[in-house]
Structure formats: C-alpha cells, structure tokens
Amino acid sequence: MSCWMPGCPALSMCRGLAALPITCLERAKDLKTRLGILLHKPEPGHKSGSSSKLQLGSRRRNSSQEVLEWRESFDQLLKSKSGVNAFHTFLKTEFSEENLDFWLACEDFKKTRSKTKLASKANRIFEEFVQNEAPREVNIDHETREITRKNLSGATSACFNEAQAKTRTLMEKDSYPRFLKSASYQDMTKQAASRGASKRSHT
C-alpha cells in the first residue's frame, strides 16, 4: 500500500529512487563533457597556428612532387605509399587489384625471418593467389604456377620471385599505362602542377 503522508519512509525511498537515474544521467553527461575536452585538448608539445600550417604546406609540396614522379617509372610509383594506394584504387575500378595485392603480399613475405612462419605464409599466399581457381587468382602461366607449387616444398623467401615478377610485368605493361591516362590521375597531376605554380609565384 502506497503512503503519501509527509515524513513517510516509503515516500522518502521513492523519492530517492526517482532521483537516482537523474544523478546517473548527470554523472554520465559530466563524464562525456570531460572526455570531449580531453579528446580535443592538444597533446603536450603540439604547436598550433602558423607552425602547423607550415607543416601542412610542406606535406602538400612533397605529395605534389611525388604525384608527378609516379609517371616517371613504375618503380617510382611502387616506392610511394600514396602512389600504391592510388594505383590500388584504380585497379579496383578494373577489378584487378589482386595483382597488386599479390605483389605486396610477396614483398611482405620476403621480410619474414622465421622458417615456421615462412612456410605457413607461403601456403596461405599460394592458396589465395596462385593455385588454380584460387579466390583471388592472379594471371600467370601454367609453367610459373607449377614452379611456384614446387618451391613450396622447401619454402624460402625467394619461392614467389618468378610469379611476382610475372605479375609485376603484367601491371607495368598493362595497368600502369592506363592508370597514367585515367581521369583520377590526370586530376591529381593538374592539382600538383597548380600547387607547384602557386608556390613559384609566391617565391
């Protein structure tokens, strides 16, 4: 039975319970506010203003130069992290990104030092990219596929060299020229050239 008499213990308890969620909500809001302040607080030693603008400008100049260097050679493109990303995005539009993914997997594979990991990685790469009807099968000839299969029996860091070289040549002669002619790369070079001209006019 409810009691609404002043001073009733049941009423005090009800009031206390009713107040609890509000207190929790207030604490949650306070915590969220503090967390927001911490997230937006600059890190110690972080300089704002003109110095950060100079750093951003420097990065833009570097990236502009990089973009123009990609057309010099396929090697220049592969040396650039942003170049690889841009090329990968282009390959996705042609549904042939597995070639670059295989090449990158081989590059990572070569850095493996543990013999146990080398063998397991080799099998995984072979099953994903090289074997017949692999989920992401790369376009290599039957002979290269068989050589690679035999190499797995005594996996070394060089066991994918021939298949990787064939895939690289295919990208260099086929996909790379199309990438350089693509609208996306043409836009990047125009922006890079524009930034370069703007820089020269201010010096």
Score class of each variant (00 low, 15 high):
D75H: 08
A163R: 02
R195T: 02
R113A: 14
R59T: 08
G49P: 03
K92T: 04
T169G: 08
L104T: 08
F109C: 02
S58V: 09
L77D: 01
A122P: 02
M171R: 03
L68G: 04
R27V: 11
K47G: 00
F102I: 02
D187E: 14
F95P: 00
E143I: 09
Y176E: 06
T93G: 04
S175W: 09
K190A: 13
F179D: 04
M1R: 14
Q131M: 11
P6K: 11
I147M: 02
G49T: 04
T148R: 01
N161E: 06
M5W: 07
W103F: 14
N62W: 05
S153T: 06
Q76D: 11
G196Y: 03
F87A: 02
M1Y: 11
E69C: 12
R71N: 02
S120E: 10
F126P: 00
A183E: 12
L56Q: 14
E43K: 11
E72P: 00
S198I: 06
Q76L: 06
R136I: 00
R61F: 11
P42S: 03
E107C: 08
L100P: 01
L56K: 14
V138W: 00
I125S: 01
R34P: 00
A197E: 13
C159E: 02
S198R: 13
Q191H: 05
L56I: 04
W70H: 12
K173E: 11
G57V: 01
L35Q: 09
R195F: 10
S182Q: 01
M1H: 14
P6S: 11
W4G: 14
M13K: 12
G7D: 05
F74A: 08
L91A: 09
N99K: 04
T167M: 00
K115M: 07
K190H: 10
H142V: 02
E128T: 13
K53S: 10
R27Q: 13
S2H: 10
F179P: 04
R71I: 02
A197L: 11
S120T: 14
K110P: 03
E127I: 03
R200W: 08
L118A: 07
T89N: 07
M188D: 09
K41Y: 06
D187C: 06
S58C: 13
Q164K: 08
K181G: 05
V84A: 03
S175H: 10
S80M: 02
L17A: 10
R149T: 00
S73M: 04
D187H: 13
Q65P: 01
L20R: 15
R61I: 14
K81S: 12
L11R: 13
A18T: 05
T156N: 01
S194A: 15
H88C: 04
C8D: 11
Q191E: 15
R124H: 11
R60H: 13
K117P: 01
C159L: 03
T33W: 05
K79F: 05
I147V: 09
G83I: 04
A158K: 12
E94N: 03
T156C: 05
K190L: 12
R168P: 00
Q164T: 01
A183W: 04
I22H: 06
A10P: 00
R15D: 08
T93L: 07
E66I: 00
Q191D: 11
L104K: 13
R178D: 09
K53L: 15
D101K: 10
M171S: 05
S2F: 14
K115S: 14
F126I: 00
Q186R: 12
P177E: 09
E162Q: 13
L11W: 04
K181H: 06
A18N: 11
R178V: 03
S201M: 13
K81Q: 10
L91C: 14
M13G: 00
